[in-house]
């Protein structure tokens, strides 16, 4: 008896958008034994990361209060990273920073997370292409090929990435994470892919502060694009020209 052989006609990266559209869904074509072909139909092509979109955040620093950490708590619960009592080595996908203006003494508070740069230094330096940007602008670590070299952490101007220092147990099934790899804010891709907004944005809205807005920067009609159009905002470390997807207002 000959065992069934398996071959993928194309790697996902080689499969063009047209292939998907033609077939009307995400399709993996599998060749069972000689001549027997099995088509595994996925959902709609629209379920893929859409290159016609660029997800981004707009943070209104004027509405963010220093005693509120709802976004941090929400992120930690959603993605299953915890405070283990040693902040220097703990994961911090999102952190709150309180600032004092040196010239005026004015006090500010804001959340910091991966800024999802268009031209991200972490992607440039990653030796294995584990750091990558999805078609819709979300910068991620592919933890399956991350070797834990931490060069991306050296390169990130925002200190947005964390290295998992300890063995992890009891992860969320939709947010795997484990020892020896680098991680950072994923913009809650698993929620975005099902049409929700990131957990931090939702939590910030629930507190009534509403300091965080999530949306598609490429859609001129979206709420976030309109807000960016009508009010001044800035990107952190704009001098580096990285075109982050996260922008700040009233800073």
């Amino acid at each position: 008896m000959k065992p069934p052989a398996l071959s993928f006609h194309k790697k996902p990266s080689e499969m063009s958008r047209r292939d998907f559209l033609k077939s009307g869904g995400a399709v993996a074509t599998i060749t069972l034994a000689q001549g027997v072909t099995l088509m595994a139909f996925g959902g709609q092509a629209g379920a893929m990361a859409d290159p016609g979109k660029r997800w981004g955040l707009l943070i209104d620093v004027g509405k963010c209060t220093s005693d509120c950490t709802a976004c941090v708590t929400a992120c930690s619960t959603e993605n299953g990273w915890q405070d283990t009592g040693h902040p220097e080595t703990d994961a911090q996908w999102i952190r709150k920073v309180d600032l004092v203006d040196d010239a005026t003494g004015h006090e500010l508070s804001l959340p910091m997370m991966c800024q999802h740069c268009d031209d991200a230094p972490c992607i440039d330096v990653c030796p294995t292409t584990a750091s990558f940007k999805r078609a819709d602008g979300i910068v991620l670590v592919d933890k399956h090929i991350c070797i834990g070299c931490r060069y991306c952490m050296m390169a990130c101007p925002y200190k947005a990435r964390s290295f998992v220092h300890e063995p992890v147990r009891g992860q969320k099934t939709y947010a795997p994470r484990g020892q020896g790899t680098v991680e950072s804010c994923t913009l809650c891709v698993h929620r975005v892919d099902r049409g929700d907004s990131p957990a931090c944005v939702e939590a910030c809205g629930k507190t009534g502060n509403g300091a965080m807005m999530f949306g598609d920067l490429m859609d001129p009609e979206s709420q976030i694009s309109q807000a960016l159009l009508n009010y001044p905002s800035l990107a952190l470390r704009d001098d580096l020209g990285l075109r982050p997807g996260v922008r700040y207002q009233n800073l």
């Binding site: 398996l6 996902p12 990266s13 869904g25 993996a28 099995l38 996925g42 379920a47």
Partner: peptide
């Protein structure tokens, strides 16, 4: 695909599909 097929190919299937989800954003 049948049990025998799964026994032999589950690693390749998962590897293929994991790239599909992680890198392409395909959840289905």
């Amino acid at each position: 695909e049948g049990n025998l097929f799964m026994r032999i190919n589950h690693m390749k299937l998962m590897k293929h599909d994991r790239d599909q989800t992680v890198r392409e954003g395909d959840r289905e």
